[in-house]
Simulated assay, not measured.
Amino acid sequence: MKKAPPCLLILSFLFSYVYSQSQDSCNSPLTLQNPLPFDTTSMQCANVWSSQGFILRYVQAAPNVWNFVLSAPNINAYVGIGFSPNGNMVGSTAIVGWVESDGTSNMKQYFLGGQQPNLVRLIQPPTQGLPLANGSTMVVQSDRIYITFQLLTPRPTSHLIYAVGPDARLPQASDYRLTEHEEHVATSLNYASGQFETQKQPESSLRRSHGILNMLGWAILMPIGAMVARYMRKWDPLWFYLHAVIQSTAFLFGLIGVICGFVLDDRLSANVSKHKALGITILTFGCLQVLALLIRPDKSSKVRKYWNWYHFGVGRVLVFLAAINVFYGIHLGKAGSSWNAGFAAVLVILFIVTLIMEIRIWFRK
């Protein structure tokens, strides 16, 4: 077997060295060109967010001093670490760093008072924010950002949150307003062992229930119940009881979904006024439909015609607004294209069935 030429071995070694220096890992020591204000050799290391390349190093340097180094890829977005008292993003204090287009690095502290932009407040240490020691800095090296700081506390909170901002939307020098993060993850860190657990946000299951119940109730079962009332009249009185059961189930699902939405709004203080207003309008129309069923006049009554106009009209507007609000809710919740595609497929199926049944009625006439 032939040996590789010396020049190729040298190039291979240099490439491996450069590549290893551009990659950060808990399996290799931290070597930065710019000296840090504290020693990093004895730090514990954890890959706290593997999908985003976040690595956290820390050590208790003194009884009331903790050293931290957060390493993350240098992309055209901000990166941050937040210390939360309860595991929620709201109420936490975050250290955020980013690199300007001209290469200037910035590191700021923010208090996350809510999800609305005006509730995310820039804070100025040392009088406010985290108890940081002087010398906190950010180092940019080999396409990675290193946020380094000393926390003056007997023991930091174990609830840590990491976030990545949206692409090309960096805080500007006028007020350094922080835009909503693109992705985030909440973890619980055991400082003694270095083990951490990714926490499931309690609002995630509530948000999912809110979306599924409203989608199933207002936007899927409601039109199915309306189709039963229109196309199954020959099976009297079966169509009426089936219509009543489906619409009652849809109203119950929708009502619970709206209640979940109010609970979410209270917990997250989210700025979703349009989505909320549409939801309240849909719920109001649903209540009107229930009242219409209770005061339904007899078939022989002269006002039955007007009641039918009212019942059909309100029902159609309800279904139309519900479909719009479901798509809007998927957008606000960043649920992804799969939710949009799935819901759209159901609507297309309902539309095709309705079109076929209307054509049959037209040919009969």
Rank of each mutant, 00 (worst) to 15 (best):
G217V: 01
A292H: 07
I359G: 12
Q52T: 03
L32S: 05
L56E: 06
F320Y: 12
K305L: 11
L119K: 01
D266A: 13
L221C: 10
F240C: 11
M215V: 03
G336S: 07
L14G: 11
S51C: 08
N190A: 12
I212H: 05
G87W: 10
F327K: 01
Q172T: 14
G53L: 02
I246A: 02
F54G: 00
C7W: 07
R144H: 14
Q109V: 00
E203Q: 15
V96L: 08
T137H: 08
E203N: 13
H243V: 03
T249Y: 03
Q52S: 14
N76D: 15
T31P: 10
P37V: 08
V272I: 11
Y78F: 12
V96P: 06
L278F: 15
K299N: 12
A173Q: 11
N190Q: 10
S174C: 12
R230G: 00
S338H: 13
W218D: 04
N271Y: 04
P154H: 05
V120Q: 10
I224M: 12
G114R: 01
M138N: 04
V164N: 03
L206M: 08
L293C: 08
Q199V: 11
L119Y: 09
F327H: 07
M89I: 11
T148Y: 09
V140P: 00
K302R: 13
I282P: 02
V140N: 06
V185P: 06
R121D: 09
L112N: 02
P35E: 03
D266T: 10
Q172G: 15
V48T: 08
S269K: 11
I95E: 00
Q52D: 11
T40K: 05
S269G: 14
V185W: 09
A61I: 15
G113Q: 00
S269D: 14
C260A: 15
A133D: 14
F343P: 03
G103D: 04
A94V: 14
